[in-house]
Design a protein around this nucleic acid. Structure first.
Lengths: 212, 212
DNA sequence: TTTAAAAAGGGGTAAATCCCCCTTTTTTTT
DNA sequence: AAAAAAAAGGGGGATTTACCCCTTTTTAAA
């Protein structure tokens, strides 16, 4: 009896190709393929569609891998999620692991490693490369506080700041006094150690608060 | 006799999965896989390694798809390049086609479409989806001049502008008068129809002049 | 040697940044 | 429940930077 695997991945060509790969493994077979997390949750309503393992991409439209993994942890904790992504950003990986992923694979890996990862996740409950393990260890002692807390209002302001609008126009759009906007800016500059609006824009894009 | 295909793609898992897919097609077989353009050109030194078709990713480290395709057009014009990318940006697609690609496929396509594309490229010399064809038609009458020519010095300035430096500091770093820098900025703003530095930063990142 | 471009500059206005300061409300702590 | 702290909103005024228009010099090209 083979273990069942579901692929959640928005790029059809990759998911179909992966499907072929996994079906070639001795112990696994693909149950079906989904294009995003929402589709997956819909499918899960039928118990026959619940697999042993979900191979989950992170960057997807509609419902991304992190949200989906968190939802699965809530509703279907027996399903093991193996994350699969090009994303090497530390925070993203940590978010995914916190959401309940049992393993994290880069797309830049050998197929034999994928097979090993699947086997380990199924049999021992987790699979992690050295890199991810080190990352986990590093995140235990939160060294220099990488995750600065920005308030909702500030985040909203930052998105406006990533446009050609002046602060006065932003104030108008957010129904606030220009002085309040200046206050947001100043506190953000201080928290993030920024010098000017250009720095803020770069930060916003790096941290995905704003997608250009 | 099957047509030979080489995959150039930096994500090993995808290239291996694709490899399985293509080997499953009746008329095609994978000759080998490369991780980037440089590796491909090295391989090509042995004539036995020259395939009928190259399946080429665009975003690669070391030597990207556009450079590589241009090089192939020069040195091995008989080899047909089929571009394969997640990139939907118009300029990127046009650059790739100008570099000599015979077709452009999004990774978000069915495997049957990949097979069709390979067949068409091999037999008729090109394959294009409706979207790409429309894009080509649009680029013939260069309507609103999508490809503004930026001078080298201006591009260099833009990269500096994507930092927290003031224009004065940029002038210093580029060994120019602040007034010259202002001149660069003004001409760029006019060419690209920008209002301020924030707009410039967003433009630079969108067009990949600056990678955050 | 004209012609154009690149580089440099002057001066003015608006925007951004940076200091101080304040009140009110909400949340947390004691 | 009272006190303290944090969050949200607002201000005055000074300095710097950014932005814009227009001119001159220097350099490179035709």
């Amino acid at each position: 009896m083979k273990y069942s695997v579901v692929i959640v991945e928005d790029h059809i060509l990759l998911s179909q190709a992966l499907s072929g790969l996994v079906n070639g493994f001795a112990k696994f077979k693909i149950l079906y393929i989904c294009k995003n997390g929402k589709e997956l949750l819909t499918r899960f309503k039928d118990p026959k569609n619940i697999p042993d393992i979900v191979l989950m991409d992170i960057n997807m439209p509609i419902m991304n891998g992190i949200e989906t993994t968190a939802a699965l942890k809530e509703q279907y904790p027996q399903v093991k999620v193996l994350a699969l992504s090009v994303e090497e950003d530390e925070n993203t990986i940590l978010k995914m692991l916190r959401a309940g992923a049992k393993g994290y694979l880069l797309k830049d890996t050998e197929k034999s490693i994928l097979e090993n990862a699947l086997i380990q996740v199924q049999e021992t409950g987790f699979y992690h490369t050295k890199d991810v393990t080190n990352l986990l260890l590093g995140s235990l002692n939160p060294k220099e506080e990488n995750n600065v807390m920005l308030k909702d209002r500030e985040v909203e302001f930052i998105k406006h700041a990533c446009t050609e609008k002046t602060y006065k126009e932003i104030a108008n759009d957010m129904c606030l006094s220009p002085k309040t906007i200046e206050g947001y800016r100043d506190s953000i500059f201080e928290k993030l150690n920024l010098k000017n609006r250009t720095g803020l824009v770069i930060y916003a894009i790096k941290s995905k608060l704003f997608v250009p």
